[in-house]
């Protein structure tokens, strides 16, 4: 924990609104990014960040200072994002579901934007979104943390409270589902 963190935390623990506001400004955007990557939805991400910060601030006394404040908030935010995705799935209003049989071949080497190709590109995007929707919250979170957040497998395990083998399997499944959206049936190994 940095001295700056410690100073703001002390003020926040004393109930100073300005200190909480500072912590929101300092961490809000970064937390939103990771929540948006996990939820794939702006509104859900913002709800997750708000929930996470409220939860964190209410339990600020529990923060032991062994890690950076941003790391502690990050962990809470990732789990809040997972909870938002699960809640949304329970309500069956998650991302749109594709039929899974409409995957189109994709040639990455030739992407000139002709009308046909643009149509194909939007179709592929829909397929990718459908595959992303099929990822379980843990698969998506593990993949986001590894690929976009650059977290190591050990860190992913700590954040998601799973073991290394489960983290690896979650990432493998996420990548397979992404490939399924982009490759013709039968091409998958």
């Amino acid at each position: 924990m940095t001295d700056d963190d410690a100073r703001w935390i002390a003020r926040a623990r004393a109930g100073e609104a300005a200190a909480f506001r500072h912590l929101v400004d300092a961490n809000g955007a970064a937390l939103f990014r990771v929540c948006a990557r996990i939820t794939g939805d702006r509104a859900l991400a913002e709800d997750a960040v708000q929930e996470a910060l409220l939860n964190a601030f209410r339990h600020l006394a529990d923060f032991d200072g062994r890690s950076a404040l941003s790391t502690w908030l990050y962990r809470i935010a990732v789990n809040a994002a997972l909870a938002q995705v699960r809640k949304r799935r329970d309500l069956e209003v998650a991302w749109p579901q594709g039929d899974g049989d409409a995957a189109m071949p994709f040639d990455a080497a030739d992407q000139s934007p002709t009308p046909d190709r643009e149509a194909m590109s939007s179709e592929i995007r829909r397929d990718v979104e459908a595959e992303l929707a099929r990822m379980s919250p843990i698969e998506r979170a593990a993949f986001v943390l590894r690929h976009q957040e650059g977290r190591s497998l050990e860190e992913i395990c700590a954040v998601l409270s799973i073991n290394v083998s489960s983290a690896k399997q979650a990432i493998f499944r996420a990548v397979r589902k992404l490939r399924a959206a982009l490759e013709a049936p039968g091409e998958l190994a």
Binding site: D25, F32, D41, F106, V175, L178, A181
Partner: peptide, 30 residues
């Protein structure tokens, strides 16, 4: 390369925060 292509597609899903995200969060949190 096929794995790289699949993963690259995930990056196109990026959602950037609004510039006033801090102020908006604070209005809700306060």
């Amino acid at each position: 390369a096929a794995i790289e292509r699949a993963i690259a597609h995930f990056d196109s899903q990026e959602i950037e925060p609004d510039p006033d995200i801090g102020a908006r969060l604070w209005r809700r949190l306060s």
